[in-house]
Design a protein around this nucleic acid. Structure first.
Lengths: 152, 152
DNA sequence: CTTTGATTGTCACGAATCTTGACTACTTGG
DNA sequence: CCAAGTAGTCAAGATTCGTGACAATCAAAG
């Protein structure tokens, strides 16, 4: 990869995008192999934060950092594909709860398996203790960096 | 990218996207404050891997993981904006070297300063040793995860 | 030297994706 | 009741990406 004599140490942004795209590549390829070939990385903004008991679109927007309009179209697509459905929120008649269907739950389960296997590879290579340490530091850095941004 | 049932520990994909977007947010906001308000995160695929002595478009595509057509349009825009210029590659008449101009070098310098300050914040919070350790592990994970992907 | 196959960069077109503003329905607090 | 804020949607425009094709050049084999 480093073809230049002076291998500049990659910064946090380069590392993040590298890891994100490679992660998505493996995840969605393997999801497709398992029959979930109609979801794309874009849908991850919803699927990654979906809760079995349902979650509000606004909450999804906050968690994923996407605009609520984008969440709306993603939910539209995933609803058409049969992964989830909208139900009225009993506690707020403005809101609707985004709930996974049977297929949605199956996808979540498959995704979790794939991700667990993926992370286990790294954990085995680095050692369990080191990997756990890494994830803890990663979480800390991500959360603190996020505080810089002003999300609506 | 699925949520874990019990510990609700964010996975590698969630963490990567969280960090990437927050990182880009701070970097490009501060670049704009310094006068570089005509570059967007999209251009990072070129600017992040630009070398003072020039680099080929194909190499940029490989490093950034983007298609060469995308690199082409990005280089077009950055050339129009005065950040870089195309020069013929002396060693290969098919190829062209993408070289930064004065403004391009100034941007690279500013970006490096901003990123250094950004990372120093995390290093101060976590301690220098821990942060260095984190980046080393991050680099290792990103590189190994990338080996999964097949880029054209 | 010539042929064959691979590589470099570009053009063009359609698809996918994001941004912005505005709007209705509903909730909250005074 | 009334004003202000929130949840979700519609619509239009801009941005960004994916795909196939192409001429020019290189590299290797014959």
């Amino acid at each position: 990869m480093a073809t230049h004599p002076e291998p500049d140490e990659p910064d946090l942004g380069v590392l993040s995008s590298l890891l994100l795209f490679a992660f998505q590549d493996e995840l969605f390829t393997k999801l497709a192999e398992r029959g979930f070939d109609d979801v794309r990385p874009r849908h991850g903004a919803v699927l990654a934060y979906l809760a079995p008991r349902g979650i509000r679109a606004t909450h999804l927007a906050l968690r994923s950092g996407q605009h609520k309009q984008i969440i709306g179209t993603l939910v539209d697509e995933l609803e058409t594909l049969g992964y989830l459905e909208r139900r009225p929120d009993p506690t707020d008649r403005r809101a609707k709860l985004v709930c996974p269907t049977e297929r949605g739950l199956a996808q979540m389960s498959a995704a979790r398996e794939i991700i667990t296997a993926l992370e286990s590879r790294h954990a085995e290579r680095l050692g369990d203790t080191k990997y756990r340490q890494f994830k803890q530091l990663f979480t800390d850095v991500a959360i603190h960096q996020r505080q810089w941004a002003t999300l609506d």
